[in-house]
């Protein structure tokens, strides 16, 4: 690959007491890539993502995101990334457009930029009529799409999505992935964790975590060839069936 790396980790480790949530993760994500982060519950996906977003301090190892060091330049990183957690985290007592305005505002966008972005975003999501609706009153599927759009409202280099389609119906999931592709086409690097193996097929490359370590990492097609199976589901099963950890 001739593109530049936007996320580089070297033996990135997180310990909680004697428990090693992430053990010496070493990988690299390239610009514009859709990078899938797979793993069973408790495998350490979310912990790894939180370290890269600057929400959690690593115990050891190195990592840079958008060229900035996670230990010393967390705030520079935060300016360059978007994040959508598995918990819905827009303000449900603010309207759709107030949420966009608020998050645009605290990322330092100008009021005129926010206005432009808001109308573009609303028409893209076909939410124009709901601009003044409180977020708590819109259907869950719309909320997820809105949350994703808000997480990239400030035009970040990288967006981190932590199980973004949890509890969403298949049609909305499909639409959600259309949004992800659109963002990737515009050059945004997408780092996404998921449980859904069909979603793994949409990724350029996937890493499969088992018990805190990366068990394998490659393009979905190559992984299937390597394990001589026909679906990512089977690849995952081949790697994760020996997992020791059960729940998170």
């Amino acid at each position: 690959m001739n593109t530049e790396a936007v996320i580089v980790t070297d033996k990135l480790t997180k310990r909680f007491g004697p428990f090693i949530a992430c053990n010496e993760l070493t990988f690299q994500v390239d610009k514009g890539e859709i990078f899938g982060f797979l793993g069973a519950n408790g495998a350490g996906k979310t912990t790894a993502m939180r370290m890269l977003c600057g929400l959690l301090n690593p115990s050891s190892g190195k990592a840079t995101v958008a060229g900035f060091d996670v230990y010393t330049q967390a705030n520079r990183i935060k300016q360059r990334i978007g994040y959508m957690s598995q918990r819905f985290s827009l303000y449900d007592d603010l309207t759709v457009s107030e949420n966009i305005r608020f998050f645009g505002g605290i990322y330092g966008m100008s009021i005129s930029d926010i206005k432009k972005k808001t109308s573009a975003l609303l028409s893209e999501l076909q939410l124009e009529k709901e601009a003044k609706t409180l977020v708590r009153d819109i259907p869950p599927g719309w909320k997820q799409k809105l949350a994703f759009s808000v997480s990239i409202v400030h035009g970040p280099d990288i967006v981190f999505l932590d199980e973004p389609t949890g509890g969403v119906d298949p049609v909305t999931r499909r639409q959600f992935w259309d949004l992800i592709y659109e963002a990737a086409d515009k050059g945004v690097t997408v780092f996404v964790t998921t449980h859904y193996m069909d979603e793994a097929e949409y990724c350029n490359r996937v890493s499969i975590m088992v018990d805190g370590v990366i068990a394998d990492l490659d393009a979905p097609a190559r992984l299937k060839t390597k394990y001589q199976v026909s679906s990512m589901e089977e690849v995952f099963y081949a790697l994760a069936r020996n997992a020791v950890r059960k729940a998170d």
């Binding site: 929400l55 935060k78 918990r87 998050f103 605290i106 990322y107």
Partner: peptide
């Protein structure tokens, strides 16, 4: 958490 990932 959404606030904490911003550079605020």
């Amino acid at each position: 958490e959404q606030i904490n990932v911003t550079p605020i």
